[in-house]
Design a protein around this nucleic acid. Sequence first.
RNA 1: GGAGAGUUGUCCGAGUGGUUGAAGGAGCACGCCUGGAAAGUGUGUAUACGGGAAACUGUAUCGAGGGUUCGAAUCCCUCACUCUCCGCCA
Length: 422
Amino acid sequence: MLQVNFIKANREAVLKGLAKKHFAETSLVDTIISLDDERKKLQFELDERQSKINTFSKEIGQLMATGEKRLAEEKKLEVASLKSFLQPVSEKLSEIEKDLHDTLVKLPNLPHSSVPIGKTPEENEIVKEGGQKPSLSYKAVPHWDLAKKYDLINFELGNKVTGAGFPFYKNKGAKLQRALIQYFLDYNTAAGYTEYEPPFMVNEASAFGTGQLPDKEDQMYLATADNLFLIPTAEVPLTNIYRDEIIKENELPVKMTGYTPCFRREAGSYGKDVRGLNRVHQFDKVELVQLVHPEKSYEVLEEMVVHVEKLLQSLHLPYRILRLCGGDMSFASALTYDFEVYSAAQEKWLEVSSVSNFETFQTNRMKIRFKGAGKTQLVHSLNGSSLALPRIVAALLENNQTADGIKLPEVLWKYFGEQSIK
RNA sequence: GGAGAGUUGUCCGAGUGGUUGAAGGAGCACGCCUGGAAAGUGUGUAUACGGGAAACUGUAUCGAGGGUUCGAAUCCCUCACUCUCCGCCA
């Protein structure tokens, strides 16, 4: 969430930013400002009275000690009257604090100046295209048919055992998952990221910290008996490792990577977009998270983009990098690059990674700070996928299909044990 | 699931009603000492929100929330979490 003081000092810029994000409820900004003014006023009153009470209490203590009971009793009465004034003020204050917080949480992050203007995915800016689209001599077969042909994935079995969108990976299909995860993690740790295997469920505070709550609880599975959410991405547990922590400046940047399954209810999805591996409720992903000095975050964002790009290049997949426009960006992000790979049979681009700088939007919620020479301040958080598996698998299958099997890129050979799927 | 113990600052740990934001130790920072380092030694070392140009200063915070009291880390209640033993179990 945005910082109140920032909003107050930059009202116009905030309004402009919200407009760029196509956020309609701009009146919230002034609501926040007046709530905070009110908050300050009440807090000040309260502090003053409390200060008097504290002084009196100490005096009463001394009077009691010297046996001056009558004077002590008089002071007690004074304190009582101060307190009766205090109570309604303090109730009002907590009400306002709650309002302020609830309102603050509704504002999305502001877009970075380089974010393209636009509302729909069509208006995203294509920053770069790389790799070669395959030229197949025959009509490319979609991955769901290839998966059946080579007995790699069983969607129907998933329907039976769990429900739609929970595929079984099988035989070489299962092994390919394992190989990709292993490869991605090795690639990330070689770049200095610390590997974690986090819990796959998180509590409410964690879900709030990264911005899943309060609005997006529809997208998460909830284990009600224990009030735990199944993670929609490793970003949630990884970033929350540092919730309520003050990091030493020389320990920045914090670089983390982790593999987890990701669980998404995807409420409201339908149609051909959800065919095969395009959109599933449970999928594997290796994630990157960085906590960095505020001055470095955009530099780091570019580094992460290059990092993910090289990973895609090593898989020899045709890809493109998009800079998301204001209207298509996520609630919490200040700047997002999406990576898409081309799938030859479906003849469309599939999103496989999203790399974002959240600046202080998440860290303000989580109170992740660092202490340097000067004062304690919030760090910037960034994250990105490297990579989400299902669509990578879809593209690998579709793009690399040949008459006698599916060829795998060389980087996977040692992990997969073979050069192709037959 | 049953029984018990616990949750204090960066960490360890003392503290059962009155200058306790909190003893002591460790760690860390800076200084002294040293040719340099270690050891030794001195000083400093929480966070949030306010007021103030600043020095500085007010309030809150000892798991969370509530209560008793003029006054609570200390007493009472509720909740959460952790640990130990037993049971169950990969």
